[in-house]
């Protein structure tokens, strides 16, 4: 009996040891610290998570990731100090990836990131990591989609005068508007009138800026940042076609949004997460482009776009991808 029991006991112990080793190995293979090894990801962003613009584009991107994750969001942090507190709080709480979605958070990140070397901080829009080994930076080549939108605007404009409503002259607003202006002027527009309202959030000023453009003969408009909903509202009331960026804004004006440059941050986020899984927690810069699929032009089927204008836009996309078109950035 005893002899017959011993091999069974040994087998049981061996099985137990195998299971423990396997479990341990399994732990080391999982990516995150969440339940069942899911990545814990947090987003800290300046505007509402459903703003149909900058912040929503990142929330949508994380939700599109092809791996298990747990997402926490602190949005509406217009005040940088509030954002800094949230970023530090998430890091202290053991979150694996903290996305600081705003150029203005760079200073805070430079102070916080060195205190949490195991945490990956993802920061943008920025073209450098500030020399921090645990920071990945991201930046959209917004000029590329801006150029395509400019080609579209010039193609459908009868007056040749196109209006732009921008926020503050900074970040991707500058590159988008610059690319848009280049594309429109290269495609026959006579004038691109640009208004920076001085605010990312003032919907009223954006609305009145759009009204001012209408007074000056503008018959196609575009704009960037979360306050453009006010300008889109004016465009809709006056039957003016609208070119969108950052997120698909078709729902704001289903018959008048011509196309939207959509940021697909998930393209570069996946790369960052792969690197992290391989042991690289930061130190690299990523760019969204038409070529890598991080930027996508989504055309609105509800807008009756002339085929020759669509062809010109498609040609511009291909030209930017193959390098034959220079957007000026």
């Amino acid at each position: 009996m005893n002899q017959s029991k011993r091999p069974a006991l040994k087998l049981l112990l061996a099985l137990l040891a195998f299971v423990m080793v396997a479990a341990a190995c399994g732990d080391s293979d999982t990516e995150g610290s969440g339940e069942d090894g899911a990545l814990r990801i947090a987003i800290v962003a300046p505007s509402a998570s459903d703003d149909l613009a900058f912040t929503q584009s990142m929330v949508d991107a994380v939700n599109a990731l092809d791996r298990p994750f747990e997402l926490e969001i602190t949005d509406g942090t217009f005040v940088v100090e509030d954002a800094a507190a949230a970023i530090r709080g998430y890091a202290e709480d053991g979150v694996d990836i903290v996305i600081a979605h705003g150029t203005q958070y760079g200073g805070s990140l430079a102070e916080i990131a060195p205190d949490f070397p195991e945490t990956t901080f993802v920061w943008g829009t920025s073209t450098d990591t500030q020399g921090l080994d645990n920071v990945f930076a991201y930046n959209p080549a917004a000029d590329e989609g801006g150029y395509v939108n400019g080609v579209l605007a010039a193609g459908i404009s009868e007056s040749g005068v196109i209006g732009v409503v921008g926020p503050i002259e900074a970040g991707d607003a500058v590159t988008y508007i610059g690319g848009f202006e280049a594309g429109a002027l290269a495609s026959g527009a006579s004038s691109v009138n640009i208004t920076y309202t001085g605010s990312f959030g003032d919907v009223t000023l954006a609305s009145e800026a759009a009204q001012a453009h209408l007074t000056n003969g503008v018959d196609v408009m575009t704009g960037t940042a979360q306050m453009v909903v006010g300008a889109v509202s004016v465009a809709t009331a006056n039957d003016i076609p609208w070119l969108a960026t950052q997120a698909d804004q078709t729902s704001l004006s289903p018959g008048l949004v011509v196309a939207s440059q959509v940021y697909r941050w998930e393209v570069v986020l996946e790369e960052m997460l792969d690197l992290r899984a391989d042991g690289t927690v930061g130190g690299q810069v990523f760019e969204l482009t038409l070529e890598n699929g991080g930027l996508v032009i989504e055309f609105n089927d509800g807008f009756d776009l002339p085929s020759e204008v669509r062809d010109a836009a498609d040609a511009a996309i291909e030209g930017i991808k193959d390098g034959s078109i220079d957007t000026g950035f």
């Binding site: 509402a48 959030g201 003032d202 919907v203 009223t204 979360q226 306050m227 909903v229 006010g230």
Partner: peptide
Amino acid sequence: LGIFQPNLTQ
């Protein structure tokens, strides 16, 4: 305006 956004009054 015909639209609402958080912190509309600025």
